[in-house]
Design a protein around this nucleic acid. Structure first.
Lengths: 203, 203
DNA sequence: ATGATTCGTAGACAATGTCAAGTTGTACGG
DNA sequence: CCGTACAACTTGACATTGTCTACGAATCAT
């Protein structure tokens, strides 16, 4: 699938994507420039238009790619962990930090084309389903009670808030230097875990 | 302070800011254009430069303004509510939705100038202090234990994640139509409240 | 009155997104 | 083997953007 031609191919599409992802990871999505991307990929300023419809098209594909990778990583953790709550929180935050270029685009429906670009929407839904499974695993009782939506929303926003505040928000500077990100995530996870125990008992 | 001249003043600075805020609220920060702002304020394309250093300067001031307004609203809720957890979560999310133009800039240190623009940093710190007070009020015991940082981080990221996922993320579309945002926030707050009770009891 | 300062305008420039038109090379049907 | 078709890519052009410089007009201190 990757090289449709038998001929040796430099895979320009991949080069363009990688250049774009790095620009976004370093300077944010606003700094993404078609021409700069083309320059880094060492192609003409119009070559990217042969692989993507326009600037938004690149962002849509990055978003799609991000959601797929995220869903995969998340499911792996989900199915192999003995303490899913902590590990999934960690996975979420770590994914955000290690794939900053993807993450900074994925959850910005104003630019990522999740409304318009069908594959992106599909990938986002895939990730959402993984999240629902996560919630069901963490607290099977609440998952089908009146909190059927509130619980995933809680877990999701907890993880997401932590990730965004650490990446682009002011949280990182507020942390005492001896406290690692993982340690913070673990502490938060521990606090959340208690609420799950209680609400499980309540049902 | 507002009109330093005795002469009748159209207050161009304010016009520019409001135009910018609306653009951001509708189309996101990427869509902010100096010239479009000037056009809407019905001034020349260079007039904004007399009130702001450059494009980033406008964003920095919007961010500052947002943090100040946020801190004020948050403190009001904090000091007048009988159930701070629910009400503060609500305030956070409602602020984000009602001041989308500000909120979309405030927590993006890559563009909001919180590192470089001193007043913005000060305003952000002000908001952070309000948040610490909130955490201390919600759970006085944990606030000085080993969770001194984890607890505010949890509350903050919970509120922040909810707000961002609702505003720019895919959460809003996932909600069943009969579930209002306030109802969701209340459910989440209720779940969080239990964890606070437990951890308070544990100490 | 005069000079300085503030607020505003107009013009120019490089850089950007994107459209339109070429150019090259590979694939394939006859 | 030739020609046609098509894909990948380049080049050129155009409107629009951010921002620099230079200029006009009003306000103020002296």
């Amino acid at each position: 699938m990757t090289p449709p031609k038998s001929h040796e191919h430099p895979d320009v599409k991949r080069l363009v994507l990688d250049a774009a992802i790095e620009i976004i990871a370093v300077d944010g999505p606003d700094a993404l420039s078609m021409r700069e991307v083309a320059r880094r990929a060492d192609i003409s300023h119009q070559a990217p238009y042969h692989h993507f419809t326009d600037r938004a098209g690149i962002l849509a594909v990055i978003s799609e790619e991000g959601f797929r990778a995220f869903a995969a990583e998340f499911r792996t953790t989900l199915s192999s962990s003995s303490s899913p709550l902590t590990d999934c929180l960690r996975t979420y935050v770590r994914f955000a930090m290690e794939h900053k270029g993807h993450f900074r685009v994925m959850f910005r429906s104003d630019i990522c084309g999740v409304e318009t670009h069908e594959p992106t929407r599909a990938a986002a839904d895939e990730a959402f389903l993984a999240l629902l499974d996560f919630a069901a695993l963490v607290n099977p009782a609440a998952a089908q009670g009146p909190d059927a939506i509130a619980l995933p929303a809680l877990l999701w926003s907890q993880a997401h808030g932590l990730a965004t505040l650490l990446i682009d928000g002011p949280l990182r500077n507020k942390l005492p230097p001896e406290l690692t990100v993982d340690a913070l995530v673990d502490s938060v996870a521990a606090l959340v875990a208690r609420s799950m125990d209680t609400s499980a008992a309540a049902h």
